[in-house]
Simulated scan of single mutants.
Amino acid sequence: MKTRSKLSRNLWIAVWLLVALLQAWQHFREKPAPPVPEPDGHLVVLKHARLVDDSGNDGDSFKIAHDGGEQVLRLYFVDCPEKRQYALVNGRLKDQAGYFGGLSIPQTVSLGMEAKAFTEKLLREQDFTVQTRWERVYDSARSYALVFFDDGEELSEKLVKAGLCRIHTKGTMMPDGQREFDFENRLRALEREAKAAQRGAWGKPKRAPPKPKP
């Protein structure tokens, strides 16, 4: 009887070890390498791009499917507020809140959710074209990209006009030959218009500045 009990216990231990090994293999197995950047910086059009619902989607980063598979993209030029608050983004949220003139953290997170909804609505309802050089975003699997709509505007322009992002991240030369500096100047002009019209973040009530100590 004791021998049978010992065998049963050993069998369960072996099963749990096998499960643990399978989980470890799943976690550490080699992932497919992302596409290699074009050596000459040439922009590649991702054919038949369409939005993929994903929990990681936000205003400036989102997953798409295209004829070559799936890819998580990150916009050039702009940074939308975080859509939730957690320890790793607290510093960034404070910077984003300050950029918009002193929003509260809850206001900034709410703005991030607005930006997410704005981008997803555009990508679901309008035709768009994605162009990328497969340039990696730091050490992540994301790639920088440009997203153009049929009206000729790029997604970063639409986000800036709506007051839903800051002009803050890597830029690039545009497909029409427009220099990075010139396109950023265009975004700055659109941002001034959004401020004047009090769109998005620019129309939200700001926190009162701290009173000077007597």
Rank of each mutant, 00 (worst) to 15 (best):
K2M: 12
R9P: 01
R9A: 12
W12M: 15
W16V: 10
A20Q: 05
L21T: 03
Q23Y: 07
Q23D: 09
Q23K: 04
A24D: 12
W25G: 10
Q26R: 10
Q26P: 00
H27I: 12
H27P: 00
R29M: 05
R29Q: 12
E30L: 04
E30Y: 02
P32L: 05
P34I: 02
P35W: 12
P35C: 10
P37K: 09
E38H: 13
G41H: 11
L43R: 13
L43V: 00
L43Y: 15
L43P: 03
L43F: 15
L46D: 06
R50F: 07
V52F: 09
G56R: 13
G56H: 12
G56Y: 09
D58W: 11
D58I: 09
G59P: 05
K63W: 14
H66P: 03
G68M: 04
G69N: 04
Q71R: 15
Q71V: 01
L73I: 04
R74K: 13
L75V: 06
Y76L: 00
F77W: 12
V78I: 14
V78S: 01
V78N: 00
D79I: 02
C80K: 01
C80G: 00
P81K: 08
P81V: 01
P81H: 08
E82N: 05
K83P: 02
R84C: 08
R84T: 13
Q85A: 13
L88V: 10
G91C: 03
G91H: 12
K94R: 15
K94W: 01
D95R: 15
Q96F: 03
A97F: 03
Y99L: 07
F100D: 01
L103G: 04
L103C: 07
I105R: 06
P106F: 11
Q107Y: 06
S110Y: 04
L111V: 10
L111W: 09
A115E: 02
K116T: 15
K116G: 01
K116R: 14
A117D: 15
A117Y: 02
F118E: 05
F118H: 11
T119G: 08
E120T: 05
K121Q: 13
K121D: 14
L123R: 07
L123W: 07
R124L: 14
E125F: 03
E125L: 08
T129W: 07
T129L: 14
V130P: 13
Q131A: 11
T132P: 12
Y138V: 10
Y138L: 13
D139W: 11
A145F: 10
A145Y: 10
L146G: 07
V147P: 11
E157R: 06
E157A: 14
K158N: 05
V160F: 14
K161R: 15
K161Q: 15
G163N: 09
L164G: 01
R166N: 02
H168F: 08
H168W: 12
K170D: 05
K170V: 08
G171M: 06
P175V: 00
G177F: 05
D182W: 02
D182L: 08
D182R: 08
N185T: 04
R186S: 03
R186P: 00
R186Y: 05
L187H: 06
R188P: 00
E191Y: 13
A194V: 15
A196C: 02
A196E: 12
A196S: 13
R199Y: 07
G200R: 07
W202Q: 03
G203A: 02
P205F: 09
A208W: 03
A208F: 03
P210F: 00
P210W: 01
K211T: 14
K211E: 15
K213R: 11
